[in-house]
């Protein structure tokens, strides 16, 4: 059963990559509800990417629980929870697309979780729902690139394809790891505006994105979570965050 109130929930999560290693996350708790756009901010090594990986089920917490749409991610590897996994859309930093495949196939790959092997192979030959794929591509503004090879696209266009993939997937939790770090300022703006549009277009969607550029985060997100050395430093609505709080995140240890 899905818990309608929360899309993503971290419950006292601590995480070590190796049993004797340092804590990448320490006692982190927060809940993300539908319609929220949450930015994770903090210096490199603060645990932003670890939070996203844990939400994705790519890493499993040492203690505590991560719950996505009512299901604990630690179990997500199991086949029966593939349908839950299908509700998570990823927009990684870059390299997110399969370069040698066409844009249409990359978008179609968002629904791999819903298909059996035969449908997977069939889609590899030619995607069935090309009209729908074209529609989501139009929504992200690159309908003309339907049959381009993915690695022929620019960085900004590739991120748009990754977003289109989450749309086609009908994911309600969109995880974006530094989605604009490889882009110039103008394109960063455009891609983030698009993400905001996409998340706002359906009431049950939520966005969790990591960003090292605090001003961008403040402008496009509704809520900011500050991380420092794997510990949650603050968790506030965007309009309540002030300069000194951000500065404290980036202070150097002496």
């Amino acid at each position: 059963m899905k818990n309608n109130s929360g899309v993503l929930s971290f419950q006292d999560v601590s995480l070590q990559y190796s049993p004797t290693g340092p804590f990448a996350l320490r006692n982190v708790s927060f809940d993300v509800g539908a319609g929220e756009r949450v930015a994770l901010v903090g210096p490199s090594g603060s645990g932003k990417t670890t939070v996203l990986s844990a939400a994705n089920g790519l890493v499993v917490p040492t203690s505590g629980e991560v719950v996505v749409n009512g299901v604990v991610t630690a179990d997500l590897n199991q086949r029966k929870h593939r349908s839950t996994r299908a509700t998570i859309g990823s927009v990684p930093q870059g390299n997110a697309l399969v370069g040698p495949l066409r844009v249409a196939h990359n978008v179609a790959s968002g629904r791999l979780g819903q298909w059996g092997p035969l449908e997977v192979l069939r889609t590899l030959v030619r995607p069935r729902d090309t009209d729908e794929i074209l529609a989501v591509l139009n929504q992200v503004g690159i309908g003309d690139k339907l049959w381009e090879r993915a690695d022929n696209l620019s960085g900004g266009q590739q991120q748009r394809v990754a977003i289109a993939r989450t749309l086609f997937q009908k994911a309600n939790l969109i995880l974006a790891d530094e989605p604009v770090s490889a882009l110039d300022p103008a394109r960063s703006e455009a891609v983030l505006e698009l993400l905001v549009d996409v998340v706002s277009s359906e009431p049950d969607r939520a966005l969790v994105t990591s960003m090292h550029d605090a001003p961008l985060a403040l402008k496009h997100c509704t809520r900011i979570i500050g991380l420092r050395l794997g510990v949650l430093a603050f968790d506030l609505p965007a309009d309540e965050v002030d300069e000194s709080q951000l500065d404290s995140l980036y202070e150097l240890d002496d």
């Binding site: 994705n56 089920g57 790519l58 086949r79 593939r82 349908s83 839950t84 996994r85 299908a86 509700t87 998570i88 859309g89 990823s90 990684p92 390299n95 997110a96 697309l97 399969v98 370069g99 790959s109 968002g110 791999l112 979780g113 819903q114 298909w115 092997p117 997977v120 990754a162 993939r165 989450t166 997937q169 994911a171 995880l175």
Partner: peptide
């Protein structure tokens, strides 16, 4: 890319 697909629920085969 493979991780992104797996995260979206693709099977090993997918």
């Amino acid at each position: 890319p493979g991780e992104a697909l797996a995260a979206a629920g693709a099977s090993e085969f997918g």
